[in-house]
Amino acid sequence: MDSPQVELMSALATLFECGKYSDLTIVCGTKRYSVHRAIVCSRSEFFDGACRNPFKESESGVIDLTEDDPEAVEHMVNYFYHLDYLSKSLSRRSSQRSRRNSPLSPRRPAQTRPKKFSLAMVEDPLMAMAAAAGAADGPLTPPTEDATDEMDADASTKLPDTPMADQHDENPFDALTADAEADIEKPHLVTHAKVYAIAEKYGIPGLKSLARKKFAHQIEMHFASPELPEACQEAYETTVDSDRGLRDVVIQTFRAHPEISLRKDVELAMRETPGLSFELFRMASGLPVSSL
């Protein structure tokens, strides 16, 4: 039996998926989200004000957020009903395994063994006897092509039943590379920064706190990610100076990993983001940053 919390979350998810009893529509570009005022307005100061006061949004039941980032809006709406966003999906490795094990998925045919191969690698007693006889009686006459084909066929029947075809079928290093890539979680640093900004804009403290936690966790694990420069710019350009939520995380990352400043892409981002450059300068000079 499901716990009350699981039952409640399942009910909220069902309301969002089917749109039943919805009385408000959030529009962002071509996407429309059928939501519920009781759920949305109780979580956001902006939506509460838009629906409570005599604005056109309260009369039409439509709130247009087309000027906002579509991805951030989608994550915001998902948070209202799931208390989360960017939930971890099935990994590529698991999906590959499921496709291999699925009876509906076509199995990759094993490559047939080449008809001609080097007999020198085959440990066959008969071949050893022939080699010994050749050493005693002089060099053997090279067999004809037909005789070689017969010898190849005989030798293939004497080979042990080993997965040699699978060894020729794929490179083991390719599998290692695929597994390594599957284990690397995409950081989504820019996405977390955008969600943080939209949560601040529309007064959703829970989402703002969640986005900061996700951003801090991912930047700690992926400080070498190519996303880092853009994420730093996003954090400084979409928040006010007094909002230290993401900025302190960025400064702490540079303090813990000073080698980041030597990257060319980071240097370019610093040149284009005065706020970031100024705070990094104060940090390098031993001056306080958070008190600015």
Rank of each mutant, 00 (worst) to 15 (best):
L176I: 06
F16C: 10
A153N: 06
P114W: 03
L246T: 04
G29Q: 13
R247H: 03
P274Y: 07
Q167W: 14
A120T: 09
Y202F: 10
M127C: 09
E7V: 14
H222S: 14
L119T: 11
E230F: 00
D161Q: 09
S290E: 10
K208L: 06
R43C: 15
A131M: 05
R37C: 13
A13I: 01
D68K: 07
G203I: 01
T144C: 06
H217K: 14
R247Y: 03
P226W: 01
V266H: 06
Y81S: 09
V77L: 06
F223N: 02
K208W: 04
P125C: 08
V77Y: 03
D137S: 05
G245H: 04
I63F: 05
L86I: 03
M151T: 06
S3V: 02
F46T: 07
L24M: 11
A256Q: 13
A256L: 11
S105G: 05
R212D: 03
P160V: 08
P4N: 12
Y79V: 09
D146Y: 03
T191A: 13
D161W: 02
L12H: 08
F80W: 01
P187C: 05
D124P: 00
R92E: 13
Q218F: 09
K31V: 11
M76K: 04
E71G: 15
I184H: 14
T177Q: 10
M164Q: 14
P114G: 13
T157V: 09
M270K: 12
L228M: 04
N171P: 03
S42N: 15
A72S: 15
L15I: 10
S209C: 06
F215H: 06
R99N: 14
S290D: 05
H222Y: 10
A128R: 14
P70A: 10
D69G: 08
K214W: 01
P114Q: 13
S277C: 13
N78H: 15
M283C: 15
S277A: 15
E57S: 04
D64T: 07
E7W: 11
L292D: 00
K116I: 02
P172A: 04
T191R: 08
T30M: 14
D248K: 04
F16M: 11
A153V: 02
V122M: 13
P226I: 01
P142R: 07
V6A: 15
S22D: 09
I39C: 14
I39G: 13
P106Y: 06
E234K: 09
E259C: 02
S10Q: 15
E200I: 00
E185T: 09
V62K: 11
A180C: 07
F173I: 05
D124L: 01
S156R: 15
I26K: 03
H36F: 02
G245A: 11
K116D: 08
R282S: 10
I251P: 00
S261R: 04
Y33R: 04
L287N: 10
V195E: 03
E123Q: 13
D149I: 05
I26R: 06
A120R: 11
L246D: 00
A231Y: 08
A50R: 04
H222K: 12
N171Q: 07
L287W: 05
F46P: 00
T144I: 04
F16P: 00
C232F: 12
S242C: 06
V73R: 06
R113Y: 14
L159V: 02
S290N: 13
E59C: 12
N53G: 02
A256I: 00
E150M: 11
E170Q: 08
D161K: 11
G49P: 01
